[in-house]
Write a protein that binds this DNA or RNA. Structure first.
Lengths: 185, 185
DNA sequence: TCGTTGATTGCACTCAGTGGCATCACCGTA
DNA sequence: TACGGTGATGCCACTGAGTGCAATCAACGA
């Protein structure tokens, strides 16, 4: 006999995201999430460090993939180009099939200062991962950090444009465009 | 007759910072801060939106000064150079006399994930202010945002080095150095 | 058969942050 | 001089996030 229904983590994540979409983040309590998932409030905090984390679940894996792509860039490439190339490659794998979900999540985050705050932390984590990959390729510390943040900025400018209603272009195109805009300014 | 001792805001800020230095941020409660300042807990929240804000009090004014300096840069200058020049000018005015305080605050922030999270928001606010100033000078949106974040990254790389024990160099030198490191990488 | 492991539960607690209302020195004005 | 408005402070009660601790009990391995 099965003691518990399987995949408590996934059920909590789904319950949370659907409630956030329905009611907004602030008006949803952890008790409601747990109830919809058929679990105890305490169990939520065994799977997620806090209520905000559930929105960004899976981010770390994306960061790893991006860093891997950057480390694989040819060794002559300058740091900013290597970072952008890595982001473009990873974005084809990670984001392209996923646009409606991303738009919905984006709206939830845009409506909540608390979630925007956490998103900034996630950007910093990504910038750090990119900087670490660049350092591994021999880039100096300052240049790696600055290139990391510049690349992250391009990525989010591009993701904004990609999320606009009516957009048809793939994310990697828009990253490339932001990069060129920066270089020629 | 004076109804209240003057400068509740300043007393709360001083009480909070001294407690954070003594005990750390997480172990200090708002009730303790209010008690040390001789005020009510509720009064704290009349002056600061939350417990984290007290650490970053005055940030907005700095952002304004930096943006003003950037807007004053000669119109031929490319965006990244204009942003860096603005940061260098403002850093001489804002930070140079203030090093010990900055080091203490830096240690408090470094010990608290909650404060690091808020610091990321403050960086984003600064990046936005820089980007807005650049847009006013005619820079395209994407280039302004990316230059803003790149400049902020240089600023914080430089501030880290400036905070190292034994450092004698002024902050603006270190910003310039980070900029050159990025450009030649 | 039996001891261990690990996911889940339940409870009690601290503390951040909020809403609403009362207080009353201070200030401008009649 | 009187008076009504303003705004900083205080008090109380409340919600909800997050934590520490101990109990439960199917599943698993020896």
């Amino acid at each position: 006999m099965v003691r518990w229904e399987p995949d408590a983590y996934g059920r909590l994540r789904d319950a949370a995201l659907s409630l956030f979409v329905e009611q907004g983040f602030e008006k949803t309590t952890v008790a409601q999430i747990a109830e919809r998932a058929g679990l105890n409030r305490r169990t939520f905090f065994h799977h997620f460090a806090d209520k905000r984390e559930v929105v960004f679940a899976g981010q770390l894996a994306s960061d790893d993939l991006i860093a891997t792509e950057i480390r694989a860039q040819p060794s002559g490439t300058d740091p900013l180009h290597a970072a952008v190339a890595g982001l473009m490659l990873a974005s084809d794998t990670l984001y392209e099939r996923y646009r409606e979900g991303a738009i919905q999540l984006g709206a939830v985050i845009a409506a909540s200062p608390e979630l925007q705050e956490r998103e900034m932390v996630k950007r910093a984590t990504l910038a750090d991962a990119i900087a670490a990959a660049l350092r591994d390729r021999g880039t100096s510390d300052a240049a790696a950090v600055v290139s990391g943040w510049a690349a992250v900025a391009m990525f989010f400018v591009a993701r904004n444009r990609w999320n606009q209603p009516g957009n048809q272009r793939p994310l990697s195109d828009l990253i490339d465009e932001a990069h060129k805009e920066f270089l020629t300014a």
